[in-house]
């Protein structure tokens, strides 16, 4: 699979914006905040994190609302919301492209949960928040995994849409830079043991960079998937270096 690409601060009017593309998904994130909240949603003790997911085609429906409901608490844990009472941090995530499946004709209205898109949405949102200079406690990354065969022995990281369709169960797990579990969503049938395997694999995939020479012990899975946290760090470093070029 091609390595991730990102473009930072490419929209002029928002506080922060990022375009993140990986595995066929392209997401544009725009972040405004902290801005004054409207009377009806202001909270006197903490900032409101307002996540808005827009589909590439069609108007947002229940599927998008569910994605928002999954992402919102995850982002809320990353931002020190108590530091910004009566404020709102607006995160708009526009889906630009989704991977195509040449064997199935696309349907516009699909009121079903699309777990495969969550990692891309989360990564785009985090890059957007970082470029908007919203204070954050930590960064995070997520990954999508599928269990394909009946005995649950093989776990595949970053599946294609066709693999997701055929999989027995699909899992999305997110970890913070401190290796804490941030989000876990699963779909399909699986046992507790299988979930434990998935958890272990996901942790290795997400937090690989932190251990020196981690790649050597990785073995089979994850070798083909990029380390997104490291990638985010490198693009932000490049952006910062570019910004300080005049010095």
């Amino acid at each position: 699979m091609a390595s991730p690409t990102a473009e930072l601060s490419h929209l002029p009017k928002t506080d922060g914006s990022a375009n993140f593309a990986y595995g066929g998904y392209t997401i544009t994130a725009a972040v405004n905040g902290p801005v004054e909240a409207q009377r009806r949603d202001e909270n006197p003790f903490e900032a409101l994190v307002d996540v808005n997911v827009r589909p590439a085609a069609g108007v947002g429906g229940t599927g998008e609302r569910q994605l928002e409901a999954i992402l919102q608490p995850a982002l809320r844990h990353l931002i020190p919301v108590r530091n910004f009472p009566r404020c709102v941090i607006q995160v708009t995530l526009q889906v630009m492209e989704t991977p195509e499946n040449a064997y199935v004709n696309p349907k516009v209205m699909q009121p079903r949960l699309n777990l495969g898109i969550i990692p891309a949405l989360l990564h785009a949102a985090i890059l957007g928040l970082l470029t908007a200079a919203v204070p954050m406690k930590t960064v995070a990354s997520a990954t999508c995994l599928v269990i394909t065969d009946a005995d649950g022995s093989s776990v595949k990281v970053d599946p294609t849409p066709a693999e997701i369709d055929q999989a027995r169960s699909v899992h999305v797990l997110g970890f913070t830079a401190g290796r804490d579990l941030l989000l876990a969503e699963s779909e399909g049938s699986f046992s507790a043991d299988e979930w434990a395997t998935v958890l272990q694999t996901a942790e290795k995939v997400c937090c690989r960079s932190q251990e020196a020479g981690g790649d050597a012990e990785m073995g089979g899975y994850g070798a083909e998937s990029e380390n997104v946290q490291q990638f985010m760090r490198s693009v932000l470093e490049a952006k910062a270096a570019e910004g300080l070029h005049w010095r």
Binding site: T14, A30, N32, N52, Q90
Partner: peptide
């Protein structure tokens, strides 16, 4: 044809 201006354009646009 559908078009929507959202907070991506400017924070003054509401969803």
């Amino acid at each position: 044809i559908t078009s929507e201006l959202g907070p991506m354009v400017a924070p003054s646009f509401e969803v």
